[in-house]
Each structure stands twice: as structure tokens, then as C-alpha cells.
Design a protein around this nucleic acid. Structure first.
Length: 420
RNA sequence: GUGCCUAUAGCUCAAUAGGUGGAGCGCCUGACUGUGGCUCAGGAGGUCGUGGGUUCAAGCCCCACUAGGCACCCCA
């Protein structure tokens, strides 16, 4: 085999399309139902946007971006997430002058140059939703709810959100100080990796998987205990809504998220059967981001979910996709004059919105019938020169193995009556 | 990026102790000269991931590379 897929890239084959169209349609439908409008930023942005918007200390920026210099001039990057591009578009296109808040969603491919594994690809698809311009905890709730509705409508059960708060620029430093004060005296007992984290990014010690460190986490400071009044009441309001709506959630004191821009609410949802790549969706509030990107001070909250991981969980849990509509009608023909008439007929049916296939070549009727069966068609219209001479087709119901003779001109009506 | 495991037909997998590669499913054709599914018969399809090495002889042993998987890192 001479050519092969680029590492971490995948071909989405016809057999997988029922899953994709089901999930994709559910995403668009739900976003619309929740009052979100679509905003699709380009795949390419200035590298600097992601460095500033995502954070140059994050894994995404420091080692996972597909970046290149275009014709020796512009530093460009294939988007490694949606949020920064959406914020840039919001600022650049003056969406802050539209009625606030703006509820925007995006659906498309994302690129991260990580080592591939099951459920982890270098090009993968995300649904992303953002509410820009509201600090209300109700906005956080809507983000949680659209995610929850998506999974519920696809057929997931027993899903529980993990949520936490990571404060704001006023109370976050106090918590970080407390974390250091707790861990530094026992640093020599922590795993080596966690000693590094403590120095570089203390929050990361909280979600460690290192055995040596785990015993010390139970008594570690909790962010919720260090929130200022604003952050605490915001969190309480959100959890109050969740309880009122009976949306299952767990407060997870160890949940911290990698991106620099999060403030207040952070959350994740994990799926089954995905191994170490379990995160189905993640998100949170990012009240300082737009200002950091050169816009006016603007609150924001959003989430992203990975489509491949949803589909993989569906397979794992045996959740069937909605069947795709296949062509209902297959036209078989015998003889050259009949073939010409069949071309007319198939064009007529398609023009009337009836999905139809026509046999290629001039094969035996048997072979054509076999094709009709395997194409999943419900009806075969048989048009031979003999039928053509009488101005009819033989309409065969493939499931019932019954067929009748129908005048060619009445075929669309016959099919319509059958469909109803 | 690190460690470990894997790689044979379109798919899932066999191949005894190094000794010229098979099955099931799928695909094509026919039995049925104008009727699908079921059955039966026949057929096509492989430089054994790629490149090197050891050996009289390599799908099998060794090395490198490529790709996939698992764990780590991190996330969707």
C-alpha cells in the first residue's frame, strides 16, 4: 500500500454515517432549540491568537498545535479548539453590538498533534457552545443543560456531571497560596511528577493519578472553601438550579481544567469504555478571556464535546443510531429503449423528491434485483422493453415479494400512496 | 514526547518444531436464458505493514522505520 492515512487522521466511512448523521443532526437541532445561532470560525487563525487565548503554558499550545509559517510571512495554526476563534470573531465582527448575551455554537473539526489512541485523534470533531455577555449563573446552567440534553436524547443514561469552581482573579491566588502551603511541607513525600507540578502549576497536583500523592489529597484545601462572596453565590445559584431540575451532578474538588482562561464554573462529563480518553465533554466560565484578546470586559461560558467519543460510547453501550434514509426505489431495466425510458423515470422521481437509484450497465434482471436488495430499497421498478411497449412498469415490493403493473405516468402517485 | 504490546485477503482470524500461505464472512459468476433474500457450485483477491539482517531456507528469529492499541502526559 503506497499511500496511507496521516497519523491520527481517520476516514469516516459510509457504514459509520448513521452514527455521524444522527449525532450531528441532534447537535444542530438541540442548539437551535436552546436558542443558539451558528458561528463557524475558519480552520486557520493567527498562531498568536491561540497562544494568548489558550495560554502558552498549556499542553495544547506548548506541544500540540499544527503551526506553520505561510509563505515565509504569517504564523498560522490549525485550530486546536473553538473558543479563541469564536471570541476573535465576536470582537472583530462587532457582535457585542448585537443583543446580549450572544448564544453561539460551532460544529467542525479540531486539530491537536497528540499521540493517537482509541478515542484520541489528531483531527476530531467538536460541538462547541458559548454564551457571551452574561455573568448570570443561569447562563452556566444553560450550557450544562444543552450538554445534558444532547447525551440524554442520544440515549445515554446515568450520566453525572462533575463540577467545581476555580474562583476568579481575586480569590484564585489565595487558593493557590493555600495549596502551596499545604503541599510544600510534604513535597518530599509526593510523586516526582507532582513535585514538578507543585512548582509549575499547583492546581494540577489535585487531579494527579500518582499513587504516592493520592493519600494526601483527602485533606488538601478545597477551592470552594476559598471562594469570595461573588464566586460562592454564583456556584450556589448554579447548583441550586441543578437540584431544582434534578440534573445529577457531583461536586468534584479535584476537578481542575487545563486551559488558563477558566474562572468560576468548571465541569466535565465522562463516558464509559473510553479508557484514559474518557472525557466526553468539558467546559466552564471564562470571564476574562475576551478582554485578554483585546475586547471589552465581557463574561462568557461555554463547553465543547467530542463527537468521536460520543459515537464510541454509543457503540460501547449498544445505543443504536437512527437509521439513515436510503433510496426507496430501484429502477431495473432490460433493453436499450427501456434503459432510456428508465433514465427519464429516475430523473422524474428525483425531481419529485423521491430518492431513487437506477441500475448501471445492462446486466441480467437477476443481478439488478440483487443490487436493489442490497441497496436497501423497498421497491423495485422493473422496466423492460415489453413493459415499455405497454407504457407500464412492474412495481415490486421487495419486502413482501408482491408486484403489480403500474402505468409509467402514475408511478409517482403509486409510490406516494404506498409511502403514506 | 516516554514505556509496553500488536501488524497475514476488503473484514475477523488460522498456519504444527524456521521448510513455496489457509478458513469464515464479504465480493464476482452460475444453477434460475426477465425477478432479490435462502441453498449449492465455481471464481477473483496476498510482493505475509515497509526496509534491511541472520540462515541452505524467514509469515515465524534480529534491527530500524511506519501505523494501530494500552498506560503515562493531557484532553474531546
Amino acid at each position: 500500500m503506497k499511500y496511507q492515512r496521516i497519523r491520527g487522521m481517520q476516514d469516516l466511512l459510509p457504514d459509520e454515517q448513521p452514527y455521524w448523521s444522527h449525532v450531528e443532526a441532534t447537535c444542530h437541532d438541540l442548539a437551535t432549540r436552546f436558542g443558539f445561532e451558528r458561528l463557524e470560525p475558519p480552520l486557520l487563525e493567527a498562531t498568536e491568537l491561540f497562544v494568548r487565548g489558550v495560554g502558552d503554558a498549556t499542553d495544547i499550545v506548548s506541544k500540540e498545535m499544527y503551526s506553520f509559517v505561510d509563505k515565509g510571512e504569517d504564523a498560522l495554526t490549525l485550530r486546536p479548539e473553538f473558543t479563541a476563534g469564536v471570541m476573535r470573531a465576536y470582537i472583530e465582527n462587532g457582535l457585542s453590538s448585537r443583543p446580549q448575551p450572544q448564544k453561539l455554537y460551532s460544529f467542525g473539526p479540531i486539530f491537536r498533534r497528540e499521540r493517537p489512541a482509541k478515542g484520541r485523534y489528531r483531527q476530531f470533531y467538536q460541538l462547541n457552545a458559548e454564551i457571551i455577555g452574561s455573568a448570570d449563573a443561569l447562563a452556566d446552567l444553560e450550557i450544562l443543560l444543552i450538554a445534558h440534553s444532547l447525551y440524554r436524547e442520544i440515549g445515554f443514561e446515568n450520566l453525572v456531571f462533575q463540577i467545581n469552581s476555580t474562583g476568579d482573579p481575586e480569590c484564585k491566588p489565595r487558593f493557590l497560596d493555600a495549596l502551596r502551603a499545604y503541599f510544600e511541607p510534604i513535597a518530599d513525600k509526593l510523586a516526582p511528577l507532582d513535585r514538578e507540578r507543585l512548582a509549575r502549576n499547583p492546581l494540577r497536583v489535585l487531579d494527579t493519578k500518582e499513587r504516592e500523592t493520592l493519600p494526601f489529597l483527602a485533606d488538601a484545601p478545597r477551592f470552594l472553601d476559598y471562594l469570595n462572596d461573588d464566586c460562592r453565590s454564583h456556584f450556589a445559584e448554579l447548583t441550586g438550579y441543578l437540584e431544582a431540575l434534578s440534573v445529577p451532578y457531583q461536586i468534584n474538588h479535584r476537578l481542575v481544567r487545563g486551559l488558563d482562561y477558566y474562572t468560576k464554573t468548571v465541569f466535565e462529563l465522562w463516558g464509559e469504555g473510553l479508557g484514559a480518553q474518557a472525557a466526553l465533554c468539558g467546559g466552564g466560565r471564562y470571564d476574562g478571556l475576551i478582554e485578554a484578546l483585546g475586547g471589552p470586559p465581557t463574561a462568557g461560558v461555554g463547553f465543547a464535546t467530542g463527537i468521536e467519543r460520543i459515537i464510541m460510547s454509543m457503540r460501547e453501550l449498544g445505543i443504536p443510531p437512527r437509521a439513515l434514509r436510503k433510496p426507496d426505489v430501484f429502477i431495473a431495466h432490460l433493453g436499450e429503449p427501456a434503459k432510456k425510458a428508465a433514465v427519464q423515470l429516475v430523473a422524474d422521481l428525483r425531481g419529485r423528491g423521491i430518492p431513487a437509484r437506477i441500475a448501471f450497465g445492462s446486466r441480467s434482471l437477476k443481478a439488478q434485483m440483487k443490487d436493489a436488495d442490497r441497496a436497501g430499497c423497498g421497491v423495485a421498478l422493473i422496466l423492460g422493453d415489453a413493459e415499455l411497449a405497454q407504457g407500464v412498469v412492474l412495481a415490486r415490493d421487495l419486502a413482501r415479494s408482491e408486484q403489480v403493473s403500474v402505468p409509467i405516468a402514475e408511478t409517482p402517485a403509486w409510490l406516494a400512496a404506498r409511502g403514506a
